[in-house]
Computed example of a mutant assay.
Amino acid sequence: MSDKQLPRGATLVPPRREPLTRKLKFRVRIPAQVWVGLGIALLFVGAGVLVRQAYHTWPVKDVVVIGRLNVLHAEEIARQILWVRNESFFTLDVTRVQRQVAAMPLVSRVAVRKRWPDSVELLLYEELPVALWNDEQLLTATGRLSDIPPGFTTTGLMRLYGADPVKNESVKYFRRLQQALNDRGLTVNSMNVNAVQAVDATLSNGWVVRFGRKYFEERLQRLVALLGKLDANEVRQVDLRYGKGAAIRWQTTGVTG
């Protein structure tokens, strides 16, 4: 049928053509080693996240105080650093702990270490108090002045009084006098050193000793000699403020030079 014979209004449909390209289908095969490697990588990433979280949140649970303590109390030391229980075991600054504890009264030295899994351990050494300074501080056996720990009673301690400008000299005189008295079985009950370093002391045998402000060592030797010669029960006061000898005030009456 020619174009002239086509019905009116009809349109010629072009013949169907094959597409120039076809959709290609293929399958990618991933080796098992790749899946294993990917799984290991994810495992490490997850473990890293957990480790990082534990590093910052693993809590300190216990504070352990170790040492031969005669004056200080382990419970009180631990109570003053309870803030460490809010810290991470891994990030806790042991230097900060060491400085805080070392600054406490009568602490001579301290070593701080962490003990796995959740403890902080303090190895503590304390000072031995031997006298009370101006009723406010403690004089230790090493000659150091320390604050008075909470709850510590000063009853029975020797009393040492002195002006702040001569604090070091006062401690030196006290220690030297006590050292000289040890061989006689005596102690210093109290000592006063004024601003011009004049020294007065009361001994455990009841003697009141006046050294003055000069020649302390020489006068101390004279006192030691008198302790070996005089009956302690008969003497009330020994005045050594003389070039030679001493003035003695007896428990009865009279003064002998």
Results as ranks from 00 to 15, higher is better:
Leu20Glu: 14
Arg222Met: 01
Tyr173Thr: 01
Tyr215Phe: 07
Glu218Cys: 00
Val130Thr: 13
Val235Gly: 05
Ala103Asp: 07
Arg222Lys: 01
Lys167Glu: 12
Asp164Leu: 11
Gly67Leu: 11
Ala225Thr: 14
Gln98Thr: 04
Phe216Glu: 08
Asn86Gly: 15
Leu50Tyr: 12
Ala180Ser: 15
Gly212Trp: 01
Gln98Cys: 03
Glu76Leu: 11
Arg144Gln: 06
Glu18Met: 04
Val171Trp: 04
Pro117Phe: 08
Tyr173Phe: 08
Gly67Ala: 12
Thr11Ile: 13
Leu38Cys: 10
Arg241Val: 07
Gly257Ser: 12
Asn134Tyr: 13
Val63His: 03
Lys25Trp: 12
Glu18Gln: 05
Phe174Cys: 00
Tyr55Glu: 01
Arg176Ser: 14
Thr153Ser: 15
Gly37Asp: 02
Ser88Gln: 03
Val71Ile: 13
Leu203Trp: 05
Ile30Met: 03
Arg29Ile: 11
Gly46Phe: 02
Val97Ser: 08
Ala163Gln: 15
Pro19Ala: 08
Ile77Ser: 02
Pro15Cys: 07
Asp147Trp: 02
Val13Met: 09
Phe90Cys: 06
Phe216Cys: 08
Ser119Asp: 06
Leu42Tyr: 07
Gln100Cys: 06
Pro150Ala: 11
Arg222Gly: 01
Leu177His: 02
Ala111Arg: 01
Val94His: 03
Val84Gly: 01
Leu223Arg: 07
Val65Asn: 01
Ala102Arg: 08
Gln98Lys: 04
Thr57Phe: 08
Val28Tyr: 14
Gln33Lys: 07
Ala198Glu: 15
Leu92Glu: 03
Gln53Ser: 06
Arg99Ala: 15
Leu139Arg: 00
Val63Thr: 05
Leu181Gly: 00
Asn205Leu: 12
Gln179Lys: 11
Thr253Glu: 12
Ala201Tyr: 03
Asn194Trp: 11
Glu127Ala: 02
Met191Thr: 11
Arg241Leu: 02
Val238Ile: 13
Glu75Ala: 15
Arg96His: 13
Val112Gly: 00
Asp147Asn: 01
Gly257Trp: 12
Gly151Phe: 04
Asn86Lys: 15
Leu106Asn: 08
Glu127Gln: 15
Arg8Gln: 14
Lys244Cys: 02
Val36Lys: 15
Pro129Ala: 04
Lys244Asp: 06
Asp93Lys: 09
Val107Met: 03
Val28Gln: 11
Asn86Gln: 15
Val238Met: 01
Ser204Lys: 00
Val130Ala: 10
Tyr242His: 12
Arg27Ala: 10
Arg213Asp: 15
Lys172Gly: 05
Glu75Met: 05
Ala180Leu: 14
Thr153Phe: 07
Arg16Lys: 13
Lys172Met: 08
Ser146Cys: 05
Thr252Ile: 10
Val71Cys: 08
Gln53Val: 06
Gln33Gly: 10
Leu226Glu: 02
Leu230Asp: 04
Asp200Thr: 15
Val112Met: 00
Leu203Arg: 11
Ala74Glu: 13
Lys167Trp: 07
Arg176Cys: 09
Tyr242Arg: 09
Leu50Ala: 14
Leu24Trp: 12
Asn194Leu: 09
Leu12Asn: 04
Arg236Lys: 14
His56Leu: 09
Trp133Val: 12
Thr154His: 10
Asp231Phe: 08
Arg96Leu: 11
Arg27Val: 14
Arg109Lys: 13
Val224Lys: 02
Thr154Ser: 10
Gln137Ile: 05
Val196Pro: 07
Gly151Met: 04
Asp93Ser: 13
Val110Pro: 00
Val171Ser: 05
Ala54Ser: 05
Thr187Glu: 03
